[in-house]
Design a binder for these strands. Structure first.
Lengths: 138, 138
DNA sequence: TATTGTTATACTCTATAACTATA
DNA sequence: TATAGTTATAGAGTATAACAATA
């Protein structure tokens, strides 16, 4: 029997992880893309919404309503940039940081459980190789 | 700087591979799901369309039009099962087998190129660990 | 003239319900 | 009554075009 394609294998594993993540995020009142936005902002505030959209690989027009929702929940702020009055700097609020951390903790717990059966060296290799293949950090 | 979530990492790598695959499949006149169907049938014919849908994780109603297209191109055949006249056995035609092999070769070439920078032991570990995490073969 | 943020629109993909023919 | 295949419809998700404000 032939090996699976790498792409097929990756897609199956990714789908499995995502399926486990979704209910954990729902517990925190977050969608997948909402969590991705919070994660990006937790690394660094976004100078423009366009830059944020590009950095997470999302459409800039869809980002608007996503940010609207997150802002309405006071998880992030959009403040006009005094240097360029077209742009709006997007930042996490303290509440947004807390919500992100809670979601992140739940996801990390799930990941540990998922990888529990693997050899520790394999776990390390997996993470290192995936990071290498993913290219420069987003 | 914190590590990325495993899910985020997997999603990035998967997207990258898929983005590389799509044009190769388009060269063969195949969609992603079309290729997945041909791959499944290349492993074994499907006793019913429902079983095929389940095995590849696709919706049975969407499978219909997908199979319609592939059948119109003579890449597969749907023949009524004499034992159960509700069911239709789905098989690759020789042309379907050839098309699948051509697509597969192109994809394997791309995968080799993508993984070329990795240590051979890491490559092997990646494939083995992903297969383990993907669960029982579909 | 180009860019940021935005809205509106169209399109594609996906899920649900209901029908037919067999079992 | 349940299942395989199918069709039609509705919904979610996504992409495209166009606009106002600013550079």
């Amino acid at each position: 029997m032939e090996d699976d394609d790498l792409g097929a294998l990756l897609a199956r594993v990714t789908r499995r992880v995502i399926d486990e993540e979704r209910p954990l995020l729902a517990d925190q009142g977050l969608s997948m893309w909402g969590y991705i936005v919070l994660s990006s902002l937790a690394r660094a505030p976004a100078q423009t919404q366009l830059a944020l959209a590009r950095s997470i690989g999302y459409d800039k027009t869809r980002l608007i309503t996503l940010l609207d929702g997150l802002e309405a929940e006071r998880l992030l702020s959009r403040t006009p940039d005094p240097e360029d009055r077209r742009a709006r700097v997007v930042r996490l609020t303290p509440e947004g940081e807390a919500r992100h951390n809670a979601a992140r903790r739940a996801i990390r717990r799930m990941e540990r459980r998922l990888l529990a059966g693997l050899d520790p060296a394999d776990r390390a290799t997996l993470r290192r190789v995936l990071a290498e293949l993913a290219g420069p950090a987003s």
